[in-house]
């Protein structure tokens, strides 16, 4: 695959499980906006309802990693809203690898938060949820994927091939 082809001749959205899968660039940002909303509500409500909302988001992260970002519940919601709101076909496609990696980072931190909450370490658990809220807000509003940015730093620290 020629790298330039990805930019100049976007292919249709391919099944997310195939390597080199492409997704609508607006999808991951929409999904992170939904994620940020869910976690913001969870943080405000807290208690059993809040913890349940965190559990829902952790499940969404897990589905996105296992089945691809386009097949995650928020990915389906994005296409539903896109069709209803008449946003039209993708203006641009991007590789599904970075958003999927971002979901894995989200799962790691939010999953830790959920375990802490269930174990009774309430403050530490909500701090972890707050971190994911901040990262999801960054991706939704600025397109900055902090986890993706850390990839090279991590690879350099680990030293070998990542």
């Amino acid at each position: 695959m020629q790298p330039q082809d990805m930019v100049q001749r976007p292919r249709p959205e391919t099944p997310p499980s195939t390597p080199g899968a492409m997704v609508d660039v607006r999808g991951p940002r929409f999904s992170s906006a939904v994620t940020a909303t869910v976690l913001a509500v969870a943080l405000v409500v807290q208690g059993p309802v809040g913890i349940a909302l965190v559990a829902v988001q952790v499940t969404v992260f897990a589905i996105a990693i296992a089945m691809g970002v386009a097949r995650s519940p928020w990915g389906h919601l994005f296409r539903f809203v896109r069709a209803r709101a008449g946003w039209g076909p993708p203006t641009e496609l991007e590789s599904a690898t970075p958003p999927r990696f971002a979901q894995a980072c989200g799962l790691l931190v939010a999953g830790t938060g959920l375990v802490l909450l269930v174990a009774g370490a309430t403050t530490a658990g909500w701090v972890a949820v707050g971190i994911v809220l901040a990262l999801a807000t960054l991706l939704a509003t600025s397109g900055l994927c902090v986890g993706c940015e850390l990839w090279l730093l991590g690879a350099r620290l680990v030293g070998g091939r990542a």
Binding site: A40, L43, G130, T137, T141, S142, G143
Partner: peptide, 24 residues
């Protein structure tokens, strides 16, 4: 509840500002 609302709003505001700074 109000306190949590303020904290959440602050986290979101800081993230938005950090994103703007990064974009610039």
């Amino acid at each position: 509840m109000i306190e949590r609302l303020v904290i959440v709003a602050a986290v979101v505001a800081v993230a938005v500002l950090a994103g703007r700074w990064w974009q610039a």
